[in-house]
């Protein structure tokens, strides 16, 4: 079996979904951790320092390429799988009761993922673009914290960000344990632990992310 055969097989595609999914999960820990520096409430001094390191250090910038590659692979593969899976049932049931045997969020990974993708595009346009322009134009006065403060003055943006976080929550709530099943880990002792870990992870990460725009909008953080 060649690599090409492996990665174009149904299970091979699942492996790349799970692998990139877990990679994105690791990234979110770093992302949530760094952004949580705003909660120090020091006018963003610490946060800006870390953000500057992340955007200027060459190791980080190299890893960023991997991050984008992983995200794009995950999103494109996910959307292709979604399309292919819909083709596997060309005629729909006239009457179906899927809620009798599975959870709505496990059946909605494609929709949740698409919402996430839209959110990520909005999010990048808010913060990534500005940071890059500053980096390449050599602008040393760029203040990411202030940019956050400005963006989060608009109530609509807060609502959109909260929608993004909610989509993320359900995507992670199913995706975390799903990735381990995809890797072939199903165990009497470890599977319940993995599920607990995934739930805890999804709750903590999403609470942190939700709190950031809210705290800024309500001026808890300055």
């Amino acid at each position: 079996m060649t690599f090409k055969h492996f990665f174009t097989s149904s299970i091979g595609k699942k492996f790349s979904m799970a692998f990139t999914g877990l990679f994105l999960i690791l990234f979110l820990i770093v992302h949530a951790g760094i952004n949580s520096c705003i909660f120090l409430n020091d006018h963003g001094i610490t946060f800006n320092k870390v953000a500057r390191f992340m955007s200027h250090n060459w190791i980080m910038r190299f890893m960023e390429i991997g991050l984008f590659a992983g995200l794009i692979l995950h999103a494109v593969q996910g959307l292709l799988l979604w399309k292919q899976n819909n083709k596997a049932r060309p005629v729909a049931y006239q009457y179906n009761q899927p809620s009798k045997n599975s959870s709505w969020y496990s059946r909605s990974m494609g929709i949740l993922g698409t919402l996430l993708l839209l959110f990520i595009i909005l999010h990048l346009s808010h913060f990534y673009v500005g940071t890059k322009i500053a980096l390449y134009s050599g602008d040393t006065t760029h203040n990411l914290f202030k940019e956050m403060d400005d963006v989060f003055k608009n109530l609509w943006i807060i609502v959109l960000y909260l929608c993004g976080v909610i989509a993320l929550f359900w995507h992670l709530y199913h995706g975390f344990q799903s990735a381990f099943q995809t890797f072939g880990i199903h165990h009497k002792k470890y599977t319940p632990l993995i599920k607990m870990l995934g739930t805890g992870y999804a709750i903590i990460i999403c609470l942190l992310f939700a709190l950031m725009p809210i705290a800024m909008y309500l001026n808890w953080i300055q």
Partner: peptide, 8 residues
Amino acid sequence: GNCTNTYA
């Protein structure tokens, strides 16, 4: 189709 672990 491809499994997405809905466990249905």
